[in-house]
Design a protein around this nucleic acid. Structure first.
Lengths: 219, 219
DNA sequence: TGTACATCAGTGAACGCGCGTTCACTGATGTAC
DNA sequence: TGTACATCAGTGAACGCGCGTTCACTGATGTAC
């Protein structure tokens, strides 16, 4: 009843911000069981509200809810990478070295996230009726946080002189593919069950390969 | 009733080889809709048999059936790569060139399969109760056709002198990750919807990167 | 400041759906004598 | 070669489950006068 400085207008209307509460609960489901576990009824149950209530806030029902969770999961991954990059500001290093270190840090953060939060990782990249229908053929991957950050890192690599401009076009896909592929193989694929030791070594080795392929002299 | 040279003993007992028929039908489901579409009841329906009948041939029920389909899908992928390799025997080229060409052909075949048969591709790498339970922590990825072939190709690369031995350890994961990652991003991920042209260019570029990272001079 | 009314966020029961699985069964096939 | 019997591969009805979604509704909140 009190309007104690809640950011949302209309807070404490009935529930307050049911939409956020449902999205948060659904995030929990995604975290625990991946996209298939994002079940509208269960999210409502966890919030303590009838399933019907969700339709006030997610007009399209379950599809809408999953779409929201997917975006949130992508955002979390982006934030995780961002944090790794922020810790990467070694002042002594030269530009080339720094650009390489940052790419490495981002890649490692990506795989680390996939491994630490497999449910969210899978949700971030799941098929999703809502966004599929909205832009059936459009390439909105450019809006994905991971892609944006990767693109910037490659630009840095070129700007620092570590990587020749001729290799810049299409470079995103190769790097993203490698990091994403390793993540997928570790999380759900045939490389699941590998030890942490081996996993780290494998990732480090793969990133070495990426860096080498981007920075080595022409042959 | 006639025992006309059917390979299977007991052929035409009641149905004949119901197990194979169910597996084949389930492959069709996987092809059309991925692992979630592998539904025991529907497979039985397609074969024209009661759902219960399936339990005679897949004791654990749906999990067993899915496991079988998963193996079949992996085998198809392996066969597809094998075919691409078989077409790669250019007699004029030297060993180094040949080894590189073969790796490239295998990678392209992998992505091509993923794109042509997304349902089977997803099924080949889906989580699967049966095999997960059977070897919870064991690394049976070494038995996967894709891994075996990749391993051999890398050996050829070393043997031909194109790739230094020092880079051989852990090399599988990086290459597999790249190819698999691109496939996943194309099939279900943010790179879905890309044009065939761009896709080919991207794959070629990524494989160039792999080859460069394996064969370039130390820096 | 009070009151009538519109709106808006929720409820709860019910729907149809398709799934995996179990049960008691039946009828064809194979086999021992 | 016939016959009684065991086995084996199938049937069909039924179960419980949980889902997404719709429906008519109610009671709190906001608003016009």
């Amino acid at each position: 009843v009190s309007t104690t400085g809640n950011a949302t207008p209309r807070a404490n209307y009935h529930h307050g911000n049911l939409r956020n509460a449902l999205a948060e609960a659904a995030m929990g489901l995604a975290r625990e069981g991946g996209p298939e576990a994002v079940v509208l009824r269960e999210a409502a149950r966890r919030v303590g509200v009838s399933a019907t209530a969700a339709y006030r806030h997610f007009a399209e029902g379950q599809g809408d809810l999953l779409g929201e969770v997917k975006n949130m999961a992508q955002a979390v991954l982006g934030r995780e990478i961002g944090r790794a990059l922020a810790e990467c500001e070694v002042p002594g290093a030269d530009r080339r070295r720094l650009a390489v270190d940052r790419l490495r840090a981002a890649g490692e953060a990506y795989v680390r996230f996939a491994f630490a939060e497999p449910g969210l990782f899978n949700t971030a990249f799941c098929r999703d009726r809502t966004s599929d229908a909205r832009q059936p053929e459009a390439l909105h991957y450019r809006e994905s946080p991971a892609y944006i950050m990767l693109s910037g890192l490659l630009d840095e690599l070129v700007a620092s002189g570590a990587m020749p401009t001729s290799r810049r076009p299409f470079a995103e896909a190769g790097v993203w593919g490698t990091i994403h592929g390793l993540s997928v193989l570790f999380v759900d694929g045939p490389l699941r069950g590998i030890t942490g030791e081996e996993r780290h070594e494998t990732v480090r080795n793969a990133i070495d390969g990426i860096v080498r392929s981007l920075t080595c002299a022409e042959d």
